[in-house]
Computed example of a mutant assay.
Amino acid sequence: MNYEVVVTCAVTGAGDTTGRSPHVPVTPKEIADAAIEAAKAGAAIAHIHVRDPETGKGSRDPKLFKEVVDRVRDSDTDVVINLTAGMGGDWVPSAEDPALPGPGTDMIGPEERLAHIKECLPEICSLDCGTLNFGDGDEIYISTPPTLRKMAELTLEWGVKPELEVFELGHIRFARQMIAEGLIADPPSFQICLGIPWGADQSVDTMKVMKDHLPLDASWASFGISRMQMPMAAAAVAMGGNIRVGLEDNIYLDRGVLATNGQLVSRAVEIIERMGGRAVSPQEARNRLNLRGSDN
């Protein structure tokens, strides 16, 4: 059981959810406001994607990230900033020639994937630790070992903590290899991602198996998607982990009731407190995760 829980709120993501809920933030101001709302509700960390303000689709434009980060930092609300570094790995084979990229492909190198991280220098950025069939279509998310090693090397140089996002056991195996090679600063921080088609299923058994494969000194969190968001949060707390909630992974508070990020964080904090624990502050999270700006 974890009695002092780091709550992350993933406020928007890059998925096609803007047409399904008016609460999914799109513009830099809306995304920054969502991060601030989540922090005021009890989240220590805001996990941030950006979207094209005109189309609502996910973007990797460093200028959009910079605007969001500046707005959050200029506010009077403290929150640990965690920027995604997962954009730029999408491959969709062409219907005419599968050896060539088709519509929807967005493949770039490790330096470009981290351009906004270098610009903004957040305390945390995500690092998706392997390749994955993403959904039932032809989309593949690609992160090869050389790409990941280079991204880990750069984040280590910049003092940005990589959140090692793992979607199946092979990802944990490679993350541990990067740790052994000295590419990840101590203590390593993992995010066990459950329910993404076609990664690991969201169940207590799956979470325990993946947790048991982590290094003994690792900090870890986990999340489930859609209606399993809160059950997986409770399971992670019971197993000694931290949690992630937010509109990136689930847009409902209850069946048929659309949520805001603040409401999802409040629900998660209530679950933690009913289990006898508490949600820690942003500064406590920095200290626990050994982030830049910690008191350790």
Rank of each mutant, 00 (worst) to 15 (best):
G135A: 01
G104S: 11
G86F: 11
F134P: 01
S94D: 15
P62M: 13
V92Q: 00
R113M: 10
P122H: 04
G104D: 12
E112K: 15
K66W: 06
G109M: 09
P122S: 01
G135Q: 03
T105Y: 07
L100C: 04
H47N: 14
P93M: 11
T131W: 00
G104R: 15
A85Q: 13
E123R: 10
M87A: 15
A95E: 15
P122C: 07
D70P: 01
P110F: 07
C125M: 07
G88D: 07
I124Y: 00
K63V: 00
T55Y: 02
P53N: 11
S94W: 06
T77V: 15
A95M: 10
G104W: 08
T131N: 11
V72L: 01
C120F: 07
A99S: 15
R60I: 01
A99E: 11
I108A: 10
V72S: 00
P122K: 03
T131Y: 00
T55N: 03
G86H: 11
L132H: 00
I81E: 09
E119W: 00
R71C: 03
D106R: 12
D61P: 10
S94I: 10
F65V: 08
P93A: 04
G89W: 02
V72M: 05
P93Q: 10
S59D: 03
E123S: 13
L114F: 12
A115N: 11
G56Y: 00
I81R: 02
P62E: 14
L121T: 08
E96Q: 09
I108P: 12
T131R: 06
K63F: 13
K63N: 14
V79C: 05
D106F: 10
K118D: 12
G104Q: 11
G58V: 07
C129G: 06
G89P: 11
T84R: 03
L64C: 06
I48T: 05
D52E: 08
L83Y: 05
L100D: 12
V80C: 02
H49R: 08
E123V: 13
T105A: 04
R51Y: 03
S59A: 13
D76Q: 12
G102A: 05
F65Q: 04
G102P: 01
V69T: 15
L127D: 12
K66E: 14
I81P: 06
D74C: 08
T105Q: 09
F65G: 04
S94N: 15
M87C: 11
T131C: 08
L64H: 05
G102L: 03
E119R: 08
P62L: 14
P103L: 02
K63L: 14
G135I: 03
E112G: 00
L100V: 04
D90C: 02
A46L: 00
R60T: 01
P98G: 05
C129K: 06
V72K: 08
L114I: 05
P103I: 09
I124T: 09
D97V: 02
V68T: 14
A95V: 14
V80K: 10
V68A: 07
A115F: 00
G88T: 03
V72P: 02
